[in-house]
Design a protein around this nucleic acid. Sequence first.
DNA 1: CGTGTTCTTGATGATCATCAAAGGTGGTGG
DNA 2: CCACCACCTTTGATGATCATCAAGAACACG
Lengths: 243, 243
Amino acid sequence: LNPFDAIARPAQEDGAETAVCSTCGARSVGLCRALDAAGLEDLLADTQQVARAPRDILFDEGAEATHVFTLIEGTAKLTRLLPDGREQVVGFRYAGDIIGYAPGRQHEFAAQLLTPARVCRIERRRLDELMRRHPPLERRLLALCVQELATTQEQLVTVGRRTAEARVAAFLLSLAAASDRRRQGDSLEMPMTRADIADFLGLTIETVSRILTGFRRRGLVREPSHGRIQLLRREALVAMTEG
Amino acid sequence: LNPFDAIARPAQEDGAETAVCSTCGARSVGLCRALDAAGLEDLLADTQQVARAPRDILFDEGAEATHVFTLIEGTAKLTRLLPDGREQVVGFRYAGDIIGYAPGRQHEFAAQLLTPARVCRIERRRLDELMRRHPPLERRLLALCVQELATTQEQLVTVGRRTAEARVAAFLLSLAAASDRRRQGDSLEMPMTRADIADFLGLTIETVSRILTGFRRRGLVREPSHGRIQLLRREALVAMTEG
DNA sequence: CGTGTTCTTGATGATCATCAAAGGTGGTGG
DNA sequence: CCACCACCTTTGATGATCATCAAGAACACG
């Protein structure tokens, strides 16, 4: 047993059977993925599934971190507020991602839905208890956290060292990577507004808009409908992120 | 027992005695902190302490992630390379920090020492085994990871939305916060070069230099010697990060 | 069908990068 | 011990990128 595999494929470890979570369904995601049948039962007892609307706020920055969420369906943005009122989007979350496992008592960022969504909610204290009973769960959370850290560092590179154009290109590619499962036909979901993208990339909405129309004119992308985008020449976008 | 406390003060949990690690000494840091006497013994058996020189590289970006390091003494920088050769510093690490627990088989960033240092090294596969035997260790690593994620997101805000001056101010304050223990007299260690700082903040060395001399002229800081800095008017720096 | 929000496009200007060169500092070896 | 050398830092002049200000167009919603 290679420990790296344990991190990469938590569902396989400790001889756990592949159980199906009644909430997530067959495409078992988020936390459930780490658990065997007994563990799942435990988890489900403490879990509530909730339907939420776009713009709903899961929690505010600074709020008590009482719950942890799994996003079953939909997209959310994580934001931090600046004293002057502007906001920085620190990340987007998609179906299967965990949201709100905070380091302290309070949430370090706010979480807001961008689309209609289904979320699974569990009390933080119960999750911590659960982790004691089911070590694979803890390992799963650690793996997710380490992965997220790498993604955030990547984002730091994008925001810190790249031109506006390269940033937008990198964003589109990350969108494509994250939604490789959720892609329908040849276009992919892009539920965030220009403002969201700008706040994510450290740009203004005008700059984002100009660059996207530039991409359109040059035939790099197409926006078949609101909230959808199609990458027509991925290599060109990749080349742009590389300088 | 409040689960939040378990995260915040891992040394206390599971009734573990406060044991002293023979390597770290009394100011038990990094991983050792999570363990009881038996666990420490286990850990020490797998651990080598090494002395390293400035500019030594702990590992390169993309290298096999075979070892995890605890920085006992000294400072290191974590960097990612861009295709064009420039680098982004994704973080600095100080005494007590863990370095190199990667999500996959390979390191996502490089780690290079800025000062003479002592590091504790453990094989990744042994650490993973150890975590199975000692759940508090895993909990400790998770706590550190979540904390680090929050710090990186904060850095994202700094780089994405602040002016050059505000970025440098924020950097100095973070330096002060991180080294509150290691402060000697009234000045604190700043072992990184202007280039390191610039690469961390998404600026150029010229801009960093200009801003620091500006701070000096205005009496906000003093640089009593190479590699040391003193913050004379912290409130002013705080105000700058907020304006 | 209006109304508010989001998106686009243009004109202008500030911030910060780039290019260039000189002063410091530490380290090395003669 | 001094001199030389590499590297880091500072300072100045110029210019590009992107923010800001402004206004109109497209769109979604009730």
